[in-house]
């Protein structure tokens, strides 16, 4: 079973991505999720994965039944997921688990967390335990973001 970081701890992942073998409830693509109308619920709730071009606003009618939203970062340097996350957390008001997955290392954790991600499925080569320190790379921030850090511009 895959290990991920959730709430700043290394834990086992209960979910299975679309197309993956094994146990656990499946994370659906946005199309599959929307096609199944309200989405196929499971005991753990419903989960969906967004690709970089997917519009997070489409999830607004279903937020209450979503237990997990995964945002995919298929390539090094992909950056749309940062905006998708801020939109989901702020404009859409999503409060459930929000996971970043893909070509990510500890170097992106600080910014991902600021945009509202609380779980992370990093590149398989990354040392997860050693990565936890990256959440405190910076102890201040100049901008307001999802994490609510006090914007220095009002110091």
């Amino acid at each position: 079973m895959r290990s991920i970081i959730r709430d700043r701890a290394v834990v086992a992942d209960a979910w299975r991505y679309a197309g993956e073998a094994g146990e656990g409830p499946e994370v659906l693509s946005l199309d599959a999720f929307l096609a199944s109308a309200a989405g196929a619920s499971s005991a753990a709730g419903t989960a969906v994965i967004l690709q970089p071009t997917d519009e997070p606003e489409k999830l607004i009618p279903y937020l209450a039944q979503l237990a997990l939203v995964v945002i995919d970062f298929p390539k090094v340097g992909e950056g749309r997921g940062f905006s998708q996350a801020q939109l989901l957390r702020q404009r859409c008001g999503y409060r459930g688990e929000l996971r970043a997955r893909g070509a990510l290392k500890r170097d992106q954790l600080f910014f991902l967390a600021r945009c509202g991600f609380d779980s992370f499925d990093l590149d398989p080569t990354e040392d997860l335990a050693a990565s936890l320190a990256a959440f405190s790379t910076f102890t201040a921030a100049y901008q307001r973001a999802v994490d609510g850090a006090l914007p220095l511009q009002s110091r």
């Binding site: 992909e78 100049y142 511009q153």
Partner: peptide, 17 residues
């Protein structure tokens, strides 16, 4: 300077196209 600070480590815009 305001823009410098705002744009420094902006979490959403660190991986632009």
């Amino acid at each position: 300077e305001l823009i410098r600070q705002w744009s420094t480590f902006h979490p959403e815009f660190t991986y632009l196209p």
